[in-house]
Write a protein that binds this DNA or RNA. Structure first.
Lengths: 190, 190
DNA sequence: TTCACCTTATGATCGAAATCATATCTGATG
DNA sequence: CATCAGATATGATTTCGATCATAAGGTGAA
């Protein structure tokens, strides 16, 4: 149920929560209870800037963890609000930290997970720096970003789904991609 | 010279390198030597996809670390090529891992650093999801992204510098920002 | 089997941002 | 102090992708 390295934690280290859309998971200033793993649903993390404006700093989706940095601070620095009803796992802070201290392999695995995430985000950012829709779609495909449906893919690479469909068919016409089915594309191996 | 938590490492744990533009720091498949901290210059990380295409997966700039995930694997998964001449620090893998195992506080600090980076990248990605140039510039400014010069700021938030200048002056005219000097802007606190 | 809904897909239009151009200001360098 | 390079700033033009619209294909439920 939980992704590595959280799967080795004892059952007392976490609990499953079910929340409705609109509910608040935690607020800026609340003492940190732990980090979270989203099974289904969507959570929005919002920070209130000094100017009084609210800024969305992250939108977490299914199978993602969030609020990782809260492990190392005393209070949350943003609000977590349920955008959709969600089932999620609260990974409690104390057991996590205890495990981290006592089990170097767990510590390594956790750090490795974070390092991998950093890498993934950097790839996405680099992808978003590609101006042309066609080139971006092609690069994203080469990097294996198209796992689920095209609309999700489009959102991930910062394009409208229409622009993405168009770029895909254009790339197929130009012979750079192969269409292997409805909504299925592959980079042409020359 | 080194950012936390690397500043506590003994001198034997790292060495300073000076490389020219065009030189290769490491190649895909090379045994991992360690992670790197860039003092000056620019390094491009490139991966060769199965299709034969080369994809830029990251461009590291001054005061950034890169290849962090290599700590936990045996070989590098991309090439690192000097885009500009650079002075950088090689943080050697073995001493790092030894420190990580033997010093839980170091381990914590390293993990915390990675978690913070994850957070920062997520913020940037969320920012890039804002379609309107004006809103994006405003949000980025509220979040304190404007630290150096405007052109760097523009690149970071995925806009041309012209569009950024225009958005800035427009936001000033509309009274949402205050111009505090040439290239200096602040969110208006109402 | 029919209906409803969502994804895939493509056409048409419009607008916003990229691009190209130009000018001013600033700081660094000799 | 003069010069030059680069950052700031804004104007003009163009282009590309967002948006709106529509249709076909697929899936699941009644």
């Amino acid at each position: 149920m939980l992704p590595a390295p959280f799967d080795i934690l004892p059952e007392t280290a976490y609990r499953v929560l079910n929340l409705d859309a609109g509910e608040t998971l935690f607020r800026q200033g609340d003492p940190t209870r732990g980090i979270f793993y989203l099974i289904t649903g969507r959570v929005r993390l919002v920070r209130f800037a000094r100017s009084g404006e609210t800024v969305v700093i992250h939108r977490a989706g299914p199978l993602e963890t969030f609020a990782e940095a809260s492990l190392f601070v005393d209070v949350y620095h943003c609000d977590a609000i349920l955008e959709q009803a969600a089932q999620l796992v609260e990974l409690r802070r104390e057991p996590l930290l205890r495990q981290f201290y006592s089990d170097p392999l767990f510590a390594m695995a956790l750090t490795s997970r974070f390092a991998t995430q950093v890498q993934t985000y950097r790839r996405r950012l680099e992808l978003l720096a590609v101006r042309s829709a066609q080139e971006r779609v092609f690069a994203a495909l080469s990097e294996g970003f198209l796992t689920g449906d095209i609309k999700t893919f489009a959102t991930e690479i910062g394009l409208s789904h229409e622009a993405t469909y168009r770029a895909l068919s254009h790339l197929v016409r130009r012979g750079r991609l192969v269409k292997t089915g409805r909504g299925k594309y592959r980079v042409k191996t020359t």
